[in-house]
Amino acid sequence: MAIFNLNINGKSQQVDVDPNTPMLWVLRDHLDLVGTKFGCGIAQCGACTIHLDGNAVRSCQLPVSSAQDSQITTIEGLSETGDHPVQKAWMEHDVPQCGYCQAGQIMTAAALLQQNPNPSEEEIENAMNGNICRCGTYTRIKAAVITASQNL
């Protein structure tokens, strides 16, 4: 066990955990930020996507020890009031079915648009390909990303 100082959603947080603990479980079990979801544990589904210094990363493969000096953003901190253009577009297109993967989808999309505000359809497909939606809402996800890019 060791103490780690983290910057999450603009706030300083301290946790006392094993250095190998993935950020996913630090967020979920220790900091009660449960919007970031556990899907596979091997970085294959994207449900646990967070932003590390603005880049979309899979928190299930990110040990807490390597997240100390970075700015971490989770779905809870993407916007203060749920009004990030990606979140708004998700609601406009009524994307979610079960909703479990959607935080990860949104975080991936938000990072994409941060880096590339006007992605082509192909760029959207490539960026979103690592996020599985078992309900199959991919066509709506794509439409929502396009809408969000127009409303940035």
Binding site: L33, V34, G35, T36, T74, I75, E76, L78, S79, G82, Q87, W90, M91, D94, P96, G99, Q102, A103, I106
Partner: peptide, 9 residues
């Protein structure tokens, strides 16, 4: 529940 879903509640 859309808003809760997209804000990670």
């Amino acid at each position: 529940e859309a808003e809760k879903i997209v804000t990670g509640k």
